[in-house]
């Protein structure tokens, strides 16, 4: 059940340029599912900041989140230290429904700060015995994180926009060279990347996770909506009906 908690920061470290990994202690950790997010209040800011869940340690009752500095709110969040507390609403939103899917080989496609939720998803897929292939895109070498962790889940390919690490180009350049059969793909990243990936993999079943400026984060304010593919005059709420949607359900145009 969705709850507001004051959570102690167990660790808060920088893992790449402008990118931070935070481990929080919460009794609700074991309820968090891949694809869900938490909504964080920061002093001096009117609106909370949604951050996706990158991993969960149910025994230790902790979860990991990863964020990148985009503006004043995330800059403020980057200055916290272990031992301090954050005001967090959790768990928020829908998850990748892998318990309902029959699959043997999954493709994870992540871009930038869309990479973290795919890591938690990948660990759950591996637990189920699913073969995982990951394609991760970053701006440049200094922004790359979690490569080794993804490699432990399965074959992992990295693309950077400027070619300073891995293959130069976009995740779609790598996907076009993969000829392995996959059952489902799971993608999270900037909207232009999701547009490219969903059109490239139009004949594959998949799920995507979206982000948008949010108000309440719990489904009341209608700030974060996405039009439906079947009827773009209608929409769904990203914070409550999403952030995970079947790839063919929403209109990213």
């Amino acid at each position: 059940m969705i709850t507001k908690q004051s959570l102690e920061i167990n660790s808060h470290i920088q893992i790449a340029e402008d990118t931070f990994e935070v481990v929080l202690q919460s009794s609700l950790s074991k309820e968090l599912k891949p694809g869900q997010f938490v909504h964080i209040q920061l002093p001096g800011h009117m609106l909370r900041r949604p951050v996706s869940i990158a991993n969960v340690n149910p025994e230790a009752e902790t979860f990991t989140m990863i964020f990148k500095i985009f503006g004043e709110g995330t800059r403020n969040l980057s200055k916290y230290q272990a031992g301090e507390f954050l005001d967090v609403i959790l768990p928020c939103g829908t998850h990748y429904p892998i318990e309902d899917l029959s699959l043997e080989h999954a493709l994870l496609v992540g871009g930038g700060i869309g990479v973290p939720p795919l890591y938690y998803l990948g660990t759950k897929l591996k637990e189920k015995g699913v073969k995982v292939t990951s394609v991760l895109g970053f701006q440049s070498a200094s922004h790359v994180f979690y490569e080794e962790k993804f490699q432990q889940l399965g074959e992992t390919f990295i693309a950077t926009n400027d070619g300073t690490y891995g293959q130069k180009g976009f995740v779609t350049d790598i996907i076009s060279k993969l000829d392995k059969p996959i059952d489902y793909y799971f993608s999270c990243g900037p909207t232009p990347m999701l547009q490219a990936v969903t059109s490239q993999l139009a004949d594959q079943k998949g799920y995507i996770s979206l982000e948008e400026r949010m108000g309440c984060g719990v489904g009341t304010c209608y700030a974060c909506v996405v039009p439906l593919k079947a009827d773009p005059s209608k929409n769904k709420k990203i914070c409550k009906d999403g952030p995970v949607f079947p790839a063919n359900e929403v209109n990213l145009a």
Binding site: M46, G73, E212, R213, M214, G215, A223, C224, K234, N235
Partner: peptide, 12 residues
């Protein structure tokens, strides 16, 4: 009604 295009909110 399905409202306006997004973004629909901004912090000030």
């Amino acid at each position: 009604r399905y409202g306006n295009p997004t973004p629909r909110v901004a912090e000030t």
